[in-house]
Design a protein around this nucleic acid. Sequence first.
DNA 1: CTGTTAGCGCCTTCAG
DNA 2: CTGAAGGCGCTAACAG
Lengths: 343, 343
Amino acid sequence: MKSTPVTLKAIARELNISLSTVSRALRGMPEVHADTRAAVHRLAAELDYQPNQLATNLAHSRTKTIGVLMPSLSYHFYSALLSSIEDAAMLAGYSVLVCQSNESHLREITNIQNLMRSQVEGFLIALSRDTSSYEHIERLTRKNFPLVLFDRCADGIAASKVIIDNEAAAFNATEHLIEQGCQRIGFLAGPPNLLISSQRVAGYQAALARHGLPARREHLLHCDFTQEDAIAQTQKLLSQRQLPDGLLVVSDRVAFPAMYTLKQRGVRIPQDLAIASFNNEPFAALQTPGLTSVSQPLPEMGIETVRLLLRQLDADHEQPPLETKVLGTQLVIRESSLRNALP
Amino acid sequence: MKSTPVTLKAIARELNISLSTVSRALRGMPEVHADTRAAVHRLAAELDYQPNQLATNLAHSRTKTIGVLMPSLSYHFYSALLSSIEDAAMLAGYSVLVCQSNESHLREITNIQNLMRSQVEGFLIALSRDTSSYEHIERLTRKNFPLVLFDRCADGIAASKVIIDNEAAAFNATEHLIEQGCQRIGFLAGPPNLLISSQRVAGYQAALARHGLPARREHLLHCDFTQEDAIAQTQKLLSQRQLPDGLLVVSDRVAFPAMYTLKQRGVRIPQDLAIASFNNEPFAALQTPGLTSVSQPLPEMGIETVRLLLRQLDADHEQPPLETKVLGTQLVIRESSLRNALP
DNA sequence: CTGTTAGCGCCTTCAG
DNA sequence: CTGAAGGCGCTAACAG
């Protein structure tokens, strides 16, 4: 049996004063008599009064809430990023409503609708893997609804963005493998429709070209981010006539199962095959051998994402300035790619 | 410049009909003329009308929302559980508001307050590591506020609970190590104030006793769930005079860094030290050697948790029946603990 | 310093 | 079938 919630009206009645006085007292407005204020606070505490945020927000027509839409919280990358986003938002007095698209285009659309209905004041979105058209996003931008895309972006959407320089990062990682003596470098890339995929492929190919290495078609494999597909694609790679001696991987969560599969098949890392990956999740350091991986500046990314959104939120009734923030990355080198140092 | 949102009033004015007719039409109430209804729907679609959920909820005094409070979404266990909770809740027409306590007692308290203000109709809570008193929880139970504790529970709280049989699971895992020939089994346990810790310790000690093995004080180490402490405690274990030849670990996220440290130090797994752990995260299978781990029925746990809450939600104005649901687990045996099969 | 009044956007009687 | 009126809990002028 739930007791009826305590309202302003209730404590006003109890104290025989007006509702608005109670409201003022509780919100610490100056023009309330000390005694009244004290009495109100005492009773409120006693009754464990909690303001109804729905009502407050409705009255204010302002929720101070932002909606965050991510592919999946079970990706370490996103859950870690979420923490930093929440912190930055809280610092600015905003709270956060999170939704997972589960990599589904459809769910992304309904999530956006739900968040809209919840009156979020702006969006932070990383697109789902299966998002193939951007009508739902453009509906927001057309209304000038505050929006920042991060990590998973798409070309041609007129929105602020926070990304890393995927091409440069892939270039560097590939070049690192080349410097370690790799001649035939494969790429376990992400789904082809994701921009992060194609950008990383571009960087990878640029590095190969730069060093006069051929970009073999059969060494470029696409895989979604599931463990099953990671294993399947790795096996596919292993079934080829000419095996690669270096491998770039689109993300650690693909690289882990790939390494596992390789080790199972007796491929020595890095002697037979050197590996470099993206994201530098905590487990990368715990792999045997330690996994070389591109570290993304998660805290900074969260802060920047929120900052770009706040800028739009504050620029009320003005043309919000669009901005694309490109963050730097760092290749964290571990044993999985270190062949030169080998005996 | 954000355009003003579309309201019922706006489309009523536009159509020269009353607001309530619009409301009825949009909600598919039967008593609306087909033509009116069509016109309303058309305009609503054209204007991309989104009902203001704040207002709806306020009018209904019902949010159909439940609050979920977890230690951290970056633990795979919790993010996976969240998915199943969200699915189950959605199926019942509820949405979910998630908060992370970040293992902090204080944050847990403020999270509960915030969720209360957001008018959640009930709570699903896994206690934080640092939660040392339960006043904030009992304040809820005293009001008969719908609440289910899961995974991280505490004795003496009068609430429904969904847990696994920690003692039995630890017993089985320990016994498995004994059967594999381990004589000196250590336990990298969790923080002592957590019930899951002490229950697992109890099961571990019971198994030792059952098989006439001594429970050495120095082989029982407590560690929080951070990677740093996992490594530190493992090193502590290794610095002892008599090393254990078997090790139970409170969770995979502790076991992974522990295995890493052991391998670094040249300890062979399982030959020198057999390991079993809890949670059976996806990466457990990808370790070398594969990590033996207690698998928890995540989907079932999410469903049960929601079910117990719904039961309270529906039992409006009646004494909600308390229930503790104990779920079974399964020990997934992999190479990290298989000594008998060794050559 | 305090009370009254009028909304916020929507739902729900109750009359037509 | 449709409209008008009151209310959800709170805030914000506007008077005293």
